[in-house]
Design a protein around this nucleic acid. Sequence first.
DNA 1: ATCGTGACTTAGGAGGTATCAG
DNA 2: CTGATACCTCCTAAGTCACGAT
Length: 699
Amino acid sequence: MWALFLPLGVQCIGYVASSVPKCTLLSCSEHKDSSEKKHKDKEKTKHKDGSSEKHKDKHKDKDKEKRKEEKFRTTFISFCSPPRIKDEPDDDGFYASPKEDSKPLKRPREDDDTFSWEKRKEWNVVACSNSFLLILQDSKAKKAKSKDKKVPEADKRKKPKKEEEQKWKWWEEERYPEGIKWKFLEHKGPVFAPPYEPLPENVKFYYDGKVMKLSTKAEEVATFFAKMLDHEYTTKEIFRKNFFKDWRKEMTSEEKSTITNLSKCDFTHMSQYFKAQSEARKQMSKEEKQKIKEENERLLKEYGYCVMDNHKERIANFKIEPPGLFRGRGNHPKMGMLKRRIMPEDIIINCSKDSKIPPPPPGHKWKEVRHDNKVTWLVSWTENIQGSIKYIMLNPSSRIKGEKDWQKYETARRLKKCVDKIRNQYREDWKSKEMKVRQRAVALYFIDKLALRAGNEKEEGETADTVGCCSLRVEHIKLHPELDGQEYVVEFDFLGKDSIRYYNKVPVEKRVFKNLQLFMENKQPEDDLFDRLNTSILNKHLQDLMEGLTAKVFRTYNASITLQQQLKELTNPDDNIPAKILSYNRANRAVAILCNHQRAPPKTFEKSMMNLQSKIDAKKEQLADARRELKSAKADAKVRRDEKSKNKVMDQACNIAIFKGSQELPTCKCTFLDPALLCWKLTVQMLCALCGIVTGVLS
DNA sequence: ATCGTGACTTAGGAGGTATCAG
DNA sequence: CTGATACCTCCTAAGTCACGAT
């Protein structure tokens, strides 16, 4: 039944503390193709249809809503220290997975004993991400459509049939032997960034208060900076230093000798010009916008697809990254460096020998053309900031990505079968005589319980200082033998991937606590917590426990199982669709919290808060007025003792009740005002409540 | 064991567009 | 109708993990 939610749940955003978790099943921020959008639209239409139903059951729904909120609140609280995953009855019939998932030559088919599409649809919510969902949803949508009596007969016959023929069911076909990714690959090569267009004469750059005409190369780099002038980046010392250093490399010797101080550079005129341009773009007529859209579509049509083994497949990023200033996340030592323009001479093309090899742009050559069918990429180049390789690969809707994705969830499903054993084992290992084993066991416990990432070592000074489990340092945790009435609490505070802060206070088992004390003995804050452990040791161990098991499988598994449990808990089969969507979003949010998926609050947040605050003030004023009125009405009634004044008292009392009553219905339309949750969100919720915003979460 | 590299997945932010409330 | 907000797509940085050389 969960399949119902899938097309909508692909990206869910909720807010945690001053940030937002974003999640669904783990890998869901990926690009969605147009077909997915169509499904979404379809679903949306459905909701609209269902709204009359909602109206009828308004009161009922509200009660249910409240109950659910309550339930979720309790659930959430337990989530602050993520729940121990309960031992579920192993519904293996439900999880009919291919036996040798690692390298099956053939996928399970509908007619297999152990596998049916009906079953598959159900567990997919746990075991799949976008690309695959799409396909399932597609067939679902079609079924629904064919049932829909409103569809004219002619449409019914023509359209869906055509679509059906076009949909390639790769998952019903045989897989290639291990290592081989394709047999035929043909594509048109990448789309390069448009060449630099020099600024019009009237746009000036000033140095030390005087107009200065820059050489084209220096001007181009200057425009990168000018475009970012409003961004906080440009105020950061490292950014400015890196930028200036790289900019100077692009200058003529004359410019170099003149421009010696970034602070004397005035980019404001340039910046204004770009702002005006972007404003003009917004103000473009419909026709002009349409023209741009058509041009983009043309580009997509020509370069956005490739042929892989007799099928036309969508390419994810067929455009080469344009030059610009590197924007690292967090405190990145290389922020502001110049990301140079990629030329055909930097490009390696990968395709079949017998395919039509894409020609390089006139007057240029490819760096290399290779024919490696053991990899999935079509184009690659080496980027100049970190020296890492960038690739052009296929869209998530492609067979090659879908298969990988499927395999990922199959591995997670296999983990489900042995996770209890593994948990028992690491608990045993907490007592091991070997330090290495103990560390491994505690780290694994964190990865499992808190869904931490593995934490590879990183080159110091090359990237922002972030850590994962294995790379945690002593300074990242605090041990509290007792905290807020709980025993053996570990306080985590570190920057993880993308420099997103992980902050959590978790009660742990005594043995873990004692071990941590031991690991921290005689160490400096900057020393590794797990000094005898790294990701390679950990993954080697996991590999022994289960084929294909690595640290990240725990994240997939725990995210999936959490979603499933939450859906079970929060959803009532009788709920209407909007209510189910709400439950889905909440379940999803629980996963986001578990995985520490966050996003910065929107820039408009401050403003909306101000708006709410002014509403609150107005409301408070009203309440105070009403109270005053009531007081005087009461006094009045005491003296007069007539019906009229008694009624007045009643009226005023009602007014107050209404004002107060609105606090008990803290629902608000915007997603981030979902009343069920979280620190700053709760603040908003309370504000909303005070404002009497009772527009209904789902209307 | 350690290191470097390559291939691939996961993730947040920017910015455009759709939708909704007032 | 308009401005605010929600939603979505694109972009690309930042992870994970395997493998081969030393």
